[in-house]
């Protein structure tokens, strides 16, 4: 390994991560800008955060988003965990290829397709659109991400422990609840956090499936962002980024302390 190649590698990494993080950093920095002009620095000020608190619609939208994310991530985690166990532990079954494809497809499917088709389903079923239709849509999207995370964990663990439990007289249900689930638990929690943030951040699918009175935070941010850059959007974006970052930190710390205890 020559020194020249090492230098090249580190400069690639630095350039790459600057590209990934600079736009987010600039957005955060300019949310503290005293000036209304978003590209001219006018001194430090928290005024846009104070203005946010007075924006009733924005605060309402934030609470709707949090509620949707909380509930939809519960469904997503339960269903995604089931799907992961089915794919990782049940071996072959009729319709496995279709099932595996359906679990994977929403990861890459353009969101407009998912949003439009779900909306047409809800219209066909005459379901009133609002909180619950967004929850159903987000649960469907989230469960696929949960399934990927949990399945990866289960496939990395030897099945022999579960087989030993059944040899010792545990029923398949007991083996599932007392052996498989505890093994998968860290990944199930990680899956919940992922489904929660995906729901909190989603704009396209929520736009199709929401109804009057259930405008989510990204929808509110979008309708203002279309009018151009404004320091208030920078401020609410910074709050959202900070919230998710805090969530991830809590999750990582909880995980680390659990590991230390074991």
């Amino acid at each position: 390994m020559t020194r020249g190649r090492g230098f090249f590698r580190w400069s690639v990494l630095v350039a790459g991560f600057v590209f990934l993080y600079a736009p987010i950093a600039l957005l955060v920095i300019y949310s503290f800008n005293a000036s209304r002009l978003v590209t001219v620095w006018g001194g430090f000020s928290p005024r846009w955060y104070i203005a946010l608190l007075d924006d009733r619609q924005m605060v309402d939208a934030a609470f709707i988003s949090l509620r949707v994310a909380f509930v939809s991530a519960l469904f997503a985690t339960a269903l995604g965990t089931c799907a992961a166990i089915a794919l990782a532990r049940l071996g072959s079954f009729r319709g496995r290829a279709l099932f595996a494809a359906m679990v994977m497809a929403p990861l890459v499917m353009p969101e407009v397709i998912m949003g439009l088709s779900l909306l047409l389903l809800f219209v066909a079923l005459d379901a009133p659109r609002g909180f619950w239709t967004i929850v159903l849509a987000h649960a469907t999207m989230g469960m696929c991400f949960v399934a990927v995370v949990v399945r990866e964990r289960l496939e990395g663990v030897d099945r022999s422990i579960e087989e030993a439990a059944m040899d010792l007289g545990a029923s398949p249900a007991q083996a599932l609840l007392r052996v498989t689930l505890p093994i998968a638990m860290p990944s199930i929690l990680a899956g919940y956090v992922l489904a929660f943030t995906l729901s909190l951040d989603d704009f396209v699918i929520a736009s199709f499936t929401s109804g009057p009175g259930s405008t989510t935070l990204p929808m509110r941010v979008y309708s203002q962002a279309r009018l151009g850059v404004s320091p208030e959007i920078n401020a609410i974006s910074t709050v959202m980024i900070g919230f998710v970052a805090a969530l991830l930190c809590v999750h990582a710390l909880a995980r680390a302390s659990r590991r230390a205890r074991d």
Partner: peptide, 16 residues
């Protein structure tokens, strides 16, 4: 970055 909102990351480029 995948964990931060897609919408916000795209929006950040408008000002740039």
């Amino acid at each position: 970055p995948f964990w931060t909102s897609f919408l916000i990351r795209v929006y950040a480029w408008i000002a740039i």
